[in-house]
Amino acid sequence: MFKPEPFVTRVAFTASDRPEAQDARARLVKRYGEAPEREAQVIIALGGDGFMLETLHKHIPDCPPIYGMNRGSVGFLMNEYSEDDLLERVNAAERALIYPLRMRARDMAGQTHDALAINEVSLLRQTRQTAKLRISIDDKVRLAELFCDGALVATPAGSTAYNLSAHGPIIPLDARVLALTPISAFRPRRWRGALLPHTAKVAFEILEADKRPVSAVADNLEVRDVLSVDVAEDRSIGLTMLFDAGRSLEERVLAEQFSA
């Protein structure tokens, strides 16, 4: 795991393909200079939330702290963009330590796919047929049959993303729980999901997979035609994001619970 240094003077800049992000990178490099990524104490990511996730994934497992500034569409995980006092902001920033989910998916061809997810692992139906899932927690079947469009397991950091859109709960960052949330559950219709301890091992079995094909997605990596999917938090990998003082990720997640 990356060990932070006491005072940040060496930063590297990375930007999404959006013109405004590329322009911002050029101006910031000219103003502050730039260290090679392998020598940087902090990486400045310029883009939206998707680019922040992409940057975190790129640098696993030895990921230095990432300080994002919004030059994209959605900026929940990003700080407000400003070119002034950048090093002062970075050094005064509050740290959010997050742990990813590890997905292991087995497909109909017999192949096994491993991937990490910072926000969520989601299972989604591939055709007009509803998905039919069996869900086990720590090797005990908790839901023998779930007819649905899909289901997901979200981290606290990801609980305000797809999980929230699927009517899942918002989770405080330090709650040490995971959200298990159905997507458009048809039967049992009233099941709204569960909050699980962060140590829980979630296993999905796809029933009638030939008739009801399902894909598994870990953030932005998709595996199609899966037969089973195992999901668990990986505490061996810690990722650090930096947020301006008074605008921590914990504060944003709390405020989101009171938003209209």
Rank of each mutant, 00 (worst) to 15 (best):
3 K>Y: 13
6 P>D: 13
8 V>Y: 11
12 A>S: 15
13 F>G: 03
14 T>A: 06
14 T>K: 06
19 P>I: 10
20 E>V: 04
23 D>H: 06
23 D>G: 01
28 L>I: 05
29 V>E: 03
30 K>D: 11
33 G>T: 08
36 P>C: 04
37 E>R: 11
38 R>H: 13
39 E>P: 01
39 E>D: 15
39 E>N: 09
40 A>Y: 07
42 V>D: 10
45 A>E: 09
45 A>W: 13
46 L>I: 06
46 L>H: 05
47 G>W: 13
47 G>I: 09
52 M>I: 14
53 L>E: 02
54 E>M: 00
56 L>T: 05
57 H>R: 13
58 K>C: 02
59 H>M: 10
61 P>G: 06
65 P>S: 09
68 G>E: 05
72 G>T: 02
73 S>W: 00
78 M>H: 08
80 E>A: 07
83 E>V: 02
83 E>L: 00
83 E>P: 09
86 L>A: 07
93 A>H: 10
93 A>K: 11
94 E>S: 12
99 Y>R: 12
104 R>Y: 05
105 A>V: 05
105 A>Q: 05
106 R>L: 14
106 R>Y: 11
110 G>D: 11
111 Q>T: 13
112 T>K: 09
114 D>Y: 10
114 D>L: 14
117 A>E: 12
117 A>I: 09
118 I>C: 06
119 N>R: 02
123 L>K: 10
124 L>A: 14
125 R>P: 05
127 T>A: 02
130 T>Y: 11
130 T>N: 15
131 A>F: 02
133 L>I: 08
135 I>P: 05
136 S>R: 10
144 A>F: 10
144 A>H: 14
145 E>C: 04
146 L>I: 12
148 C>H: 10
149 D>C: 09
151 A>Y: 09
152 L>F: 03
152 L>S: 03
153 V>H: 00
155 T>N: 03
157 A>Q: 13
158 G>K: 03
158 G>W: 08
161 A>W: 00
166 A>M: 08
167 H>T: 12
170 I>Y: 05
171 I>V: 13
174 D>W: 09
174 D>I: 08
175 A>T: 01
181 T>M: 01
181 T>F: 01
182 P>Y: 07
183 I>E: 01
184 S>L: 08
184 S>G: 00
190 R>K: 11
190 R>Y: 11
192 R>F: 05
192 R>I: 00
198 H>P: 00
199 T>L: 08
200 A>C: 12
204 F>Y: 14
204 F>N: 04
205 E>N: 05
207 L>R: 11
209 A>Q: 12
211 K>P: 00
211 K>Y: 05
216 A>D: 01
216 A>P: 04
217 V>H: 13
219 D>G: 09
219 D>H: 07
220 N>R: 15
222 E>L: 08
222 E>W: 01
222 E>N: 07
224 R>L: 03
225 D>T: 06
225 D>Y: 09
229 V>A: 02
231 V>I: 15
231 V>E: 02
234 D>H: 14
235 R>I: 08
235 R>W: 02
237 I>G: 03
237 I>F: 01
238 G>P: 06
246 G>W: 11
249 L>G: 05
250 E>V: 07
252 R>D: 03
255 A>L: 14
255 A>V: 09
257 Q>W: 10
259 S>C: 08
259 S>Y: 11
259 S>Q: 14
